[in-house]
Simulated assay, not measured.
Amino acid sequence: MEAIRVMAGEHLPVQPACRVLHVAESGYYAWRDRPPSNRLVKHARLTEAIVGIHTASRGTYGRRRVHADTPPWHAQPGGVMPALACGGGVLASGV
């Protein structure tokens, strides 16, 4: 779906993109107009917190120290570590 959104943003027609990717147009538009899921919102907040911690350390904190400094409301299964891996590429290499 994201690929179709990118193509539509480049002013390419949605209908052929959906056909090529075997996606119903109605499904794409329903996905596009749906509000973000709770998980997506939570992941965005977590990524923001991780980037903030890393930036505040002037880029010296690696994934372990960022994890230790992450607020407790983020510390749960599937929370901090996956976001550290994809947090905008900031800590993907890890320390």
Rank of each mutant, 00 (worst) to 15 (best):
V90R: 13
A3V: 07
P13Q: 13
A83E: 01
H74L: 15
V95S: 09
G87M: 06
H74A: 15
Q15D: 14
A30I: 14
D33E: 08
G94R: 08
A49N: 04
V23L: 03
V95P: 04
T55R: 15
K42T: 10
W31E: 06
S57K: 07
G62V: 01
W73F: 11
S37G: 05
L84G: 00
G9N: 06
Y29S: 12
R63M: 06
R34N: 08
L12F: 11
A92T: 12
E10A: 12
V95K: 13
V51M: 04
I4A: 01
V6Y: 05
A56Y: 04
A17E: 05
S93T: 09
V6S: 10
A8Q: 10
T60I: 11
G89D: 00
E48T: 14
I50D: 00
M7K: 07
E10H: 14
E48R: 13
L12T: 06
V23W: 03
A24L: 13
R19A: 12
R34P: 03
R64S: 10
G59I: 03
E48H: 12
G79M: 01
V80L: 03
I53M: 03
A17W: 09
V66A: 04
P36M: 08
A92D: 13
G79F: 00
A56K: 04
P77V: 04
P77H: 13
V20F: 11
L21W: 00
L12V: 07
G62K: 01
V80I: 08
V90L: 11
E2Q: 14
A83G: 06
V6N: 06
T70F: 01
L91E: 02
Y28P: 07
P13K: 15
L21H: 02
E48Y: 04
R5S: 10
V6K: 08
R58S: 06
G78W: 04
V41P: 06
V80K: 00
R65P: 01
E10Q: 12
R65T: 09
Y28Q: 10
V80Q: 01
E25R: 15
A17T: 11
V6I: 11
V23E: 02
G89Q: 01
T55M: 12
G88A: 05
E48L: 10
H74Q: 14
A92K: 12
A49Q: 06
A44C: 03
V14N: 07
V14I: 15
W73E: 15
G27M: 05
V23D: 00
G52N: 15
G87N: 13
P71E: 09
C18Y: 03
P82K: 02
M7E: 08
I4L: 02
T60A: 14
A3N: 11
G27V: 02
I53R: 02
